[in-house]
Design a protein around this nucleic acid. Structure first.
Lengths: 215, 215
DNA sequence: GGTTGTGAACAAATTCACAGCG
DNA sequence: CGCTGTGAATTTGTTCACAACC
């Protein structure tokens, strides 16, 4: 049975956006076709992995030629659900939340920040970089009105679990958590974590274990 | 041969900081010992994985009792190289770089931000949240003077590779890259990536593939 | 009795290597 | 001939299950 009929492995899903970014570059360069070799180089992986990953999407390559850049980009966007925008809310209008609201990379890649949410009523009512700040009690209504399916948690660790509970209540089933704590979400909710200091701690490990001469 | 004599797997290294965070909580609660079961719950993994992971550090548990919280935390800090602070530089004094400089989580977990670096001389000379802003040309000297081993790239994608090259030149061998692009670094340099929009794209995939009822 | 530490079994992910096709 | 698509082999990571030990 061919790979494309099986469920796409998590590791592959996590690389698709990297390929898509490379394809966007190639589209910009007006490059018509690309080999797995070249795409691998751009994405920082090896060619066998690219071919295996792409095979889960279908047989979109041509033997002896490579992949049609535009067609592959389209298929990949479709597979990733990126054919339309996904408005997101950011919970926590503190330092990090405000910076994320102002981060152009979200909007540019199809994730406009529709609202900032905070529990502190003093922050509510204003705008941060053009994004309105609402109270957490309004979240269920906002999620419905704005068609929000994805939330970003940018609160202190202590507040993250209760926020996750409110999100579950509001029917939001995709969460990106920046709070440095483990949160539990209902079965069926997708959760991704970004822990900034944790990444540095991992680097510290390898730094500490490097011999002076290396590696 | 026991696990602790083998090289620690990458997947385990990536989880050690999560355990350490849980242990720090337990220390705060004045909890003396902890079972793998309890630690697993706190870290959001299963107990077998905790025991296997901890076994790479050594036999620090007591059968029938569990792990001594303080002792394990100490051993883990030592293994992670967190017995002293690691000052970091952030390259790119834009939106994200400034937010990261102001992010308390770095300092709190032993990674004080010693300097912000920018290529734009108009930004240089001032301070952002108490952190001095220097020019990229001063990086080699700064790295040496401030004892900096870890750098954070928070520039636009287009500048990231040239920044990585400067970092290599300056002898910095641990890099956390926030720029949404693949960068290549010399053999022996540790590189971790955080791509904010990419995380949302991954969530989009699962959101798009979710059937209305489940799973 | 309770919990660790760890081989063994299992699963996921990566890489190889080459048949198949344009 | 060149490059994809993919089974097979390998490597890495996870989970099981239980002997060893306090």
């Amino acid at each position: 049975m061919s790979d494309r009929t099986r469920r796409i492995p998590e590791a592959t899903v996590a690389r698709l956006p990297v390929y898509l970014r490379s394809l966007a570059e190639l589209v910009g360069d007006k490059t018509a076709t690309v080999s797995s070799e070249r795409l691998a180089e751009m994405a920082g992986v090896n060619a066998a992995k690219v071919r295996k990953d792409l095979s889960y999407l279908g047989s979109y390559g041509t033997r002896g030629v490579g992949y049609d850049v535009e067609y592959l980009a389209f298929q990949m966007s479709r597979e990733l659900g990126l054919t339309h925008d996904w408005p997101v809310v950011i919970i926590g209008a503190g330092n990090l939340g405000q910076a994320l609201a102002n981060y152009g990379g979200f909007r540019d890649r199809g994730f406009p920040v529709a609202a900032l949410i905070d529990a502190n009523r003093e922050k509510v009512g204003g705008h941060v970089h053009g994004v309105p700040v609402h109270h957490i009690d309004d979240l269920p209504r906002l999620a419905k009105d704005l068609g929000i399916a994805i939330a970003v948690i940018a609160t202190p660790a202590g507040a993250a679990q209760s926020v996750a509970d409110v999100l579950a209540e509001a029917g939001i089933r995709s969460i990106l958590n920046f709070a440095p704590t483990v949160i539990s979400v209902p079965e069926g909710t997708s959760l991704r974590k970004v822990d900034l200091a944790l990444e540095l701690q991992i680097l510290s490990f390898y730094q500490a274990h490097r011999t002076p001469e290396g590696p």
